[in-house]
Lab assay of single mutants.
Amino acid sequence: VTTYKLVINGKTLKGETTTKAVDAETAEKAFKQYANDNGVDAVWTYDDATKTFTVTEMV
């Protein structure tokens, strides 16, 4: 189990959160659900070296 981080650069929601998951795909599903629940529709990137997902909402 690995800890993954999500950085949110949204128009109305900004911040960071983490989740523990067995792999990046599982973490991504959890983070996308979190973003969807909070109304963030954005572009996703992932950095495997830092285990960090970044979501940037387009203006």
Results as ranks from 00 to 15, higher is better:
Val1Phe: 13
Thr2Ser: 10
Thr2Cys: 12
Thr3Ile: 13
Tyr4Asp: 02
Tyr4Arg: 02
Lys5Leu: 07
Lys5Asn: 05
Leu6Ser: 01
Val7Asp: 02
Ile8Gly: 03
Ile8Trp: 13
Lys11Glu: 08
Lys11His: 12
Lys11Asn: 09
Lys11Trp: 09
Lys11Ser: 11
Lys11Leu: 14
Thr12Ala: 08
Thr12Ile: 11
Thr12Glu: 08
Leu13Arg: 10
Lys14Ser: 10
Lys14Tyr: 10
Gly15Thr: 14
Gly15Asp: 08
Gly15Pro: 05
Gly15His: 14
Gly15Gln: 13
Glu16Thr: 13
Thr17Ser: 08
Thr18Gly: 02
Thr18Phe: 14
Thr18Asp: 04
Thr18Leu: 09
Thr19His: 07
Thr19Phe: 14
Thr19Leu: 15
Thr19Asp: 02
Lys20Glu: 14
Ala21Tyr: 05
Ala21Cys: 06
Val22Ala: 11
Val22Gln: 09
Asp23Arg: 03
Asp23Ala: 02
Ala24Pro: 10
Ala24Glu: 04
Ala24Asn: 04
Ala24Ser: 07
Glu25Ile: 11
Ala27Tyr: 01
Ala27Thr: 00
Ala27Asn: 00
Phe31Val: 01
Phe31Lys: 00
Phe31Leu: 04
Lys32Tyr: 05
Lys32Glu: 03
Lys32Ile: 08
Lys32Met: 08
Lys32Gln: 07
Gln33Ala: 12
Gln33Gly: 05
Gln33Cys: 06
Tyr34Asn: 03
Asn36His: 14
Asn36Phe: 14
Gly39Met: 13
Val40Cys: 10
Val40Lys: 06
Asp41Gln: 09
Ala42Asp: 05
Ala42Tyr: 14
Trp44Val: 02
Thr45Ala: 07
Thr45Pro: 00
Tyr46Phe: 05
Tyr46Asn: 00
Tyr46Gln: 00
Asp47Thr: 03
Asp47Glu: 05
Asp47Trp: 02
Asp47Ser: 04
Asp47Ile: 03
Asp48Ile: 05
Asp48Thr: 06
Asp48Ser: 08
Ala49Tyr: 09
Ala49Cys: 06
Ala49Glu: 11
Thr50Asn: 07
Lys51Leu: 06
Lys51Thr: 02
Lys51Trp: 04
Lys51Ile: 01
Thr52Glu: 02
Thr52Gly: 01
Thr52Asn: 01
Thr52His: 00
Thr52Gln: 03
Thr52Cys: 01
Phe53Arg: 00
Val55Trp: 06
Val55Asp: 01
Thr56Cys: 07
Thr56Gly: 05
Thr56Tyr: 11
Met58Asp: 11
Met58Pro: 10
Val59Asp: 14
Val59Arg: 09
